[in-house]
Amino acid sequence: MTRRDRREPEFTEFFGAHAAGLRRTAYLVVRDWHLAEDLTQQAMAKLYAAWGRTRPATRLAYARRIVVNECLSHLRRRRPETAFETVPDLAAPTAGDSPLDLGRALELLPPRQRAIVALRFLEDLPVDEVARVLGVASGTVKSQTSRALDTLRRHLPDLAEELS
């Protein structure tokens, strides 16, 4: 059996087991399901190309790093928003709207902080692993986590007690 013959089923199994989680992480960073799907696919293509150079024990961490890097790169390349002379009126909240809107609060975070929150709390990774995935120091992960949680506490006061 050639290396290519082994790579196909290994990669297919890996993709089936981890694509959904990687897509969730991408979504938390870019805040768009379709874009998260596209960026996850791009990351998987890069992983497939590097498959033979990766170790089975570190493939998931490598895949996370590729996904987060793809998301952050996309957000850096994104066109700036168009300015308008007047701000459109916002819809008034209805009785069924909840003041607890985690999605809107996450949009207040810079992309790197969203990535850290996604990896720390969605993927449940320890600080050192998040630092390895993002290629930053552990102290940076700790300080950015603290800043992100402070922002979320300010904008989601109902969660303040749960996040403490």
Rank of each mutant, 00 (worst) to 15 (best):
4 R>W: 12
6 R>G: 12
7 R>C: 09
9 P>Q: 02
13 E>N: 14
14 F>C: 01
15 F>I: 11
18 H>D: 00
22 L>W: 14
22 L>P: 03
27 Y>N: 02
28 L>H: 07
29 V>D: 03
30 V>K: 02
30 V>D: 04
31 R>W: 12
33 W>K: 12
36 A>F: 00
39 L>W: 06
40 T>L: 11
42 Q>C: 04
43 A>P: 10
45 A>R: 08
46 K>T: 06
46 K>A: 08
46 K>D: 06
47 L>P: 02
48 Y>C: 01
50 A>K: 12
53 R>C: 03
56 P>H: 08
56 P>W: 03
57 A>D: 01
58 T>G: 04
58 T>S: 01
59 R>T: 01
60 L>T: 01
62 Y>Q: 01
63 A>P: 06
63 A>W: 04
66 I>F: 05
67 V>Q: 06
67 V>W: 06
68 V>M: 00
72 L>F: 05
73 S>R: 10
75 L>C: 11
77 R>E: 09
79 R>V: 12
80 P>F: 05
81 E>W: 11
84 F>T: 14
86 T>G: 01
87 V>F: 08
88 P>E: 04
92 A>L: 15
93 P>I: 05
95 A>C: 01
95 A>D: 14
99 P>F: 07
101 D>G: 01
102 L>T: 15
102 L>W: 15
105 A>W: 10
105 A>T: 14
109 L>R: 04
114 R>W: 12
116 I>T: 13
118 A>H: 03
118 A>D: 11
118 A>C: 11
120 R>P: 14
120 R>Q: 13
120 R>A: 15
121 F>I: 07
125 L>R: 07
126 P>V: 10
126 P>L: 06
129 E>I: 03
133 V>Q: 01
137 A>I: 08
138 S>C: 15
139 G>D: 13
139 G>Q: 06
144 Q>G: 06
147 R>C: 09
147 R>G: 11
148 A>E: 06
154 R>L: 12
155 H>K: 01
156 L>M: 08
157 P>T: 11
158 D>I: 13
161 E>S: 05
161 E>M: 04
163 L>M: 13
